[in-house]
């Protein structure tokens, strides 16, 4: 009896500690948002702020370059050094360390693409946009959008919750070197998926690998809230090691957001793991140190993840689009009701 009571008290303590940590994270984010807004003049502030339920702005994101699909808000290029520092401090406060690093690597990759394309103004780190929907608050819901070519972060803050869906990450080139260091912004998404596929036995693999080509994202931009029929191998048919690998792979998206929000999200996704599917299409091998060229999808009650290499303009291992959704809670609709 005493032990049960002690466990109950410890659980309550942990829960209240988690809630307190999440609330602290929100408070920190709101401070960073207000600090950023404080650096802007009235005109800039008008450009960056939108209504929380501005339906047009919510869906103004894409994998495509901003010249092809215009975004709104403020670009990083039009900010002063002080304003840009504040903008990135805000972004950093909303993301985990690895999440922020991943975002920076995607942005840097676009700068590399610009360089490769003879300084094509269609690309580059200066044309990534930031916008704020709603008023930064510890209680009322609001949203930060940050994105451009191959990146669309939609982060809804609702009290202690941080919701990262829908979010698009991508990379081109998906492998580059800076100062002699090789960078693969979405390398873990590739390597962990291939490791999981290779950990399956023959029967499981037969179920997971689809016998048709998937040419692109099925639920990319413009497909909010849609839920397709899952296919492939169900996690309930995986062993515990394979399920751990699947959760670890899912974490590459779920852990982009700051730690306390990510931890709540991972717990939710773990609870639905038995009903989560893993499907693969295309090439099942990869050259060492390179990304896969096969497509895969993870789909559960509260998640859809797609990884879609693009055979456009060359080697598909160098050009990747990924999508991370919660069809039940895109833009935090389930939590905010808006």
């Amino acid at each position: 009896m005493k032990a049960t009571r002690a466990i109950r008290i410890a659980t309550l303590f942990c829960l209240s500690l988690t809630a307190a940590t999440a609330q602290q994270a929100t408070a920190k984010i709101v401070r960073a948002a207000n600090a950023f807004l404080g650096t802007l003049d009235a005109k800039q502030r008008q450009s960056v702020m939108f209504g929380f339920d501005d339906a047009k702005q919510r869906v103004r994101w894409s994998n495509l370059p901003v010249r092809m699909v215009p975004r709104a808000g403020l670009t990083m290029g039009e900010l002063s050094a002080e304003q840009r520092t504040a903008a990135f401090a805000l972004l950093s406060s909303m993301l985990s360390r690895r999440g922020y690093e991943k975002v920076q690597q995607i942005v840097e990759g676009d700068e590399v693409l610009k360089h490769n394309e003879r300084d094509n103004p269609m690309f580059g780190k200066d044309i990534f946009y930031m916008s704020i929907l709603g008023t930064p608050s510890e209680k009322e819901p609001w949203m930060l959008q940050f994105g451009g070519h191959h990146l669309a972060l939609n982060i809804t803050i609702a009290g202690e919750q941080g919701i990262l869906t829908p979010t698009l990450t991508g990379a081109q080139p998906a492998l580059y070197t800076i100062d002699g260091k090789t960078i693969r912004p979405l390398g873990q998404e590739s390597d962990k998926a291939l490791a999981l596929l290779n950990a399956l036995d023959e029967g499981q693999r037969k179920q997971a690998v689809l016998n048709y080509r998937v040419a692109d994202l099925v639920l990319g931009p413009g497909q909010d809230g849609k839920k397709i029929q899952p296919e492939g191998l169900k996690a309930s048919a995986m062993n515990s090691q394979q399920r751990t690998m699947l959760m670890d792979l899912i974490g590459e998206w779920a852990n982009i957001v700051h730690e306390s929000a990510a931890s709540a999200r991972m717990a939710q996704l773990k609870a639905g793991l038995e009903d989560t599917w893993f499907a693969w299409s295309g090439n099942t091998t990869a050259a060492p140190g390179h990304n896969i060229t096969g497509y895969y999808r993870i789909q559960g009650p509260n998640v859809v993840i797609e990884y879609a290499p693009q055979p456009l303009g060359g080697d598909p291992s160098l050009h990747v689009h990924t999508m991370y959704r919660d069809p039940t809670n895109d833009y935090g609709k389930k939590v905010t009701g808006k």
Binding site: V112, H115, N116, P173, L175, Y176, I178
Partner: peptide, 12 residues
């Protein structure tokens, strides 16, 4: 110093 993989791996 940016050395793009594109230079090594072909035009993107």
């Amino acid at each position: 110093r940016i050395l793009a993989a594109g230079l090594l791996l072909g035009h993107l």
